[in-house]
Deep mutational scan, measured.
Amino acid sequence: NQASVVANQLIPINTALTLVMMRSEVVTPVGIPAEDIPRLVGMQVNRAVPLGTTLMPDMVKGYA
């Protein structure tokens, strides 16, 4: 099963992502693939992302 990117903490709206904010986990539904974590660093979320939430492509500005 493919691992997805999951929020390791509450990520406030418009926050630029850092490695410490994300972890990989096998979840359903599948979100952004864990191998894209390096690409996500520095990108901003367009909404608040609660701890444990799977990051979906539409949550990250410029990802989709």
Results as ranks from 00 to 15, higher is better:
N1W: 08
P12T: 06
K61L: 14
T15W: 06
T53M: 12
V5H: 00
R39H: 07
A48D: 15
R47T: 13
L17F: 08
M59K: 01
L55M: 08
K61D: 07
R23G: 11
I32P: 00
M22V: 12
Q44G: 08
Q44V: 07
D58H: 10
A3N: 13
A16S: 10
L10M: 10
N8M: 09
D36A: 03
P38E: 10
A7V: 12
I37F: 07
L55N: 00
I37L: 12
S4H: 02
R47Y: 11
T18K: 05
V45L: 07
V41C: 03
L40A: 02
P38W: 13
G31F: 02
V49D: 00
N46M: 09
M56A: 11
Q44P: 09
Q9I: 14
N14G: 09
M56K: 09
R39D: 02
A64K: 14
I32K: 00
N46L: 11
A16M: 12
L55C: 03
P50Y: 08
I11C: 02
I13D: 04
S24K: 06
V41A: 07
P33G: 08
N46T: 10
G31E: 02
V45P: 05
M21K: 04
A3V: 10
N14Q: 04
T53N: 09
S24N: 15
S4N: 02
V26F: 05
L19P: 11
L40K: 00
I13E: 09
V26C: 10
G62N: 09
A16Y: 06
V45R: 00
V41Q: 14
N8T: 13
N46H: 12
L51P: 11
Y63M: 15
G42L: 02
V49A: 06
Q2M: 10
R39L: 10
D58I: 09
G52L: 08
L17G: 01
V27Y: 08
T28Q: 08
R39Y: 13
Q9T: 07
N46K: 07
R23W: 13
L40V: 11
M21H: 11
N1F: 07
V20H: 15
P29G: 13
P29I: 14
S24Y: 07
P12Y: 04
G42P: 01
L10A: 13
V26S: 14
V45W: 00
P33L: 10
V45G: 02
K61I: 08
E25V: 02
V60G: 00
S24D: 10
L17W: 00
P38K: 08
R39G: 12
K61Q: 10
L40I: 10
N1V: 15
V6T: 15
T53K: 11
M43A: 06
V27C: 04
I37G: 11
A3T: 14
T28I: 05
M43L: 12
T54Q: 04
L17Y: 00
V60K: 01
Q9P: 01
L51G: 10
E25F: 02
D36W: 03
V30K: 02
V41K: 06
P50D: 12
L17I: 09
V20G: 13
M56S: 09
A34E: 15
S24Q: 13
S24M: 10
L40H: 01
T15D: 05
V60Q: 01
A48K: 07
A16Q: 05
D58R: 03
L17P: 01
G42Q: 06
K61C: 14
V30C: 05
